[in-house]
Nucleic acid binder design. Sequence first.
DNA 1: CTACGCGATGAAACCGTTTTCATTCAACAC
DNA 2: GTGTTGAATGAAAACGGTTTCATCGCGTAG
Lengths: 337, 337
Amino acid sequence: MQKDPLRQFRMRDIAQQAGVSLVTVSRVLNQPEKVARATRERVLKVIHEHDYIPDMLAGSMASRRSFAVGVIVPTITNSLFADTIDGLSSVLEPAGYQLMIGSSRYDPVREGALVRTMLSRRVDALVLTGTTHDPDAHKLLASARLPVFEMWNLTPSPIDTVIGFSNFEAARQMTLWLHGQGYRCIGYLGGLTEKNDRTTDREAGFLAAMDEIGDDAADGRIVRAPFDFPSGGTGIRALKQQCPGIDAAFAASDVLAVGAVLECQRQNWQVPQQLAIAGLDDSIIAAQLTPSLTTVRLPRYEIGRRIGEEFLARVNGRAAGPRQIDLGFEIVPRESA
Amino acid sequence: MQKDPLRQFRMRDIAQQAGVSLVTVSRVLNQPEKVARATRERVLKVIHEHDYIPDMLAGSMASRRSFAVGVIVPTITNSLFADTIDGLSSVLEPAGYQLMIGSSRYDPVREGALVRTMLSRRVDALVLTGTTHDPDAHKLLASARLPVFEMWNLTPSPIDTVIGFSNFEAARQMTLWLHGQGYRCIGYLGGLTEKNDRTTDREAGFLAAMDEIGDDAADGRIVRAPFDFPSGGTGIRALKQQCPGIDAAFAASDVLAVGAVLECQRQNWQVPQQLAIAGLDDSIIAAQLTPSLTTVRLPRYEIGRRIGEEFLARVNGRAAGPRQIDLGFEIVPRESA
DNA sequence: CTACGCGATGAAACCGTTTTCATTCAACAC
DNA sequence: GTGTTGAATGAAAACGGTTTCATCGCGTAG
């Protein structure tokens, strides 16, 4: 009479039924080639008969590998990061890894808490968005001996490896491009900059470009807003009101840019004749809009894929790639500017 | 001389440094009230000094609780499910749970594989999208003794608990509503129906409504497409070509509807004068569009939140709620129809 | 004075795997 | 016939916690 007759099968039970030792069952599962064919088949038969599912917690604990990778993004609601996550899982999943996703809501403290949780769960690697983090978390990561990937930006002083593109350059070059198109009074619709290196760098890139152009009144043509459609609308209105002479607006995110274009439709402002609008992301809807959105294409999916590949390379002992990988970006001229 | 001087601190080490037994450390972490104040503070001091992070794998294994909940959605790229995930984590995260997210890519077999992986990782509960699943997975779940939640639809025969709304009714009622608005030749732009209970039910709802209306040619006004913006465009073109007399199109998803509206803008078809368009989702962009999109508001976030609450109630031993929870939907009339 | 209950603590068993090391046995070389 | 080798297998020791049960004082009721 069992203590708990409904209890799940353990490896021990499978071993017993197959008339082998527990070790052999473990080998059948993890290094089948090391087990004689006959034995292996006998064990597999028992495994299937009982729908045996090994306990990965126990396995991970013993092997000190969890086959889990932690990913912390600001929000999963924005499809930007969802694309990166998709890219990551396209590489890691076939390799047997599972993603553990957390969203920091753009809050470094929450990010730090997530880092702790994930370390506690003994992830095999950690992927963070951006290059500025809570000091405590930073220290923790530096001493934890696991691969850490920062993404979606570049930095001269990465924790471990950075994979992304230069937000500064992306914004700078788009601004210069707009100037090259003949726009002379360019406004900037940016994200909230507190504690967010990507938006900070983009704004800096815009200002740097304006400086090069010789426009020293650019500070007065900056509006900051959270990344959502309605804010794009209110943002563009604010910008237009703030400096009526504006002939182009560069939004540091497609969400804002699309929101702005839609608002222009409502206001009956001709885009780009009266007001040109450019975005940054090349989100899926950018090309569909009328007028279609001029924007900067970012390596959203590629960032994830590349991180996955670098990680696998490291796990397999192949030399780690460079510590900083710049995946670049590309200006996509369309109708809106 | 240690074997590995860089090795992370274990509970044993903390205990030793604090001059207590390992058990006491464990209690300080999990049931602090059971430890004398003085002892507790001494232990906590050591813990903080060394930035000790307990090994949750070991903890989960011993306690037989992982504090992880598995969630399987068709795709995380679509913000629909991202909203649900947000709702879920808004409830579960404060309770100390972590989500383990997997995307099935609308493939039951992949879903089944994910179910196995998650069971293997000993999640405390499992959340699935939809109500039709791979038979093997279904069997596995029925015998696994953990809470299982199906969501985003209803069914008379749930595995465990279903939380969602009636896709059939949502489509049916929107169709009837369109008819009530005076549209007489209504087309349907739906998702691919294979193996997807939500799209299947929506299409059935549309047909049921057309039947009630007395329109028996509706089958000829159905176009199916994957859920993305471009497909909304090609879909509406196909529909218009297939039956030029069409005066309204009901898209079973806002992505398709938005894609359709944008295509109409390009084609210069007046919406809703020449062609009315209605969607289903109330996605964030629906209200921003010009014309704004008439659609069906779904309890996206609420589904997640409610599942979280039901799960916690069960964990805390409170009686489980009803096995089927209908969160309803709401028709949102706007400008496009 | 003794028995009892209770708060605080610890020893030992256990959770279900992987890893390391040893053993067995058959094939093969000399 | 005797080592030598290598494939196949298993015993035992981790892995780092939690749970159960026992013990130790100490205040208090009888």
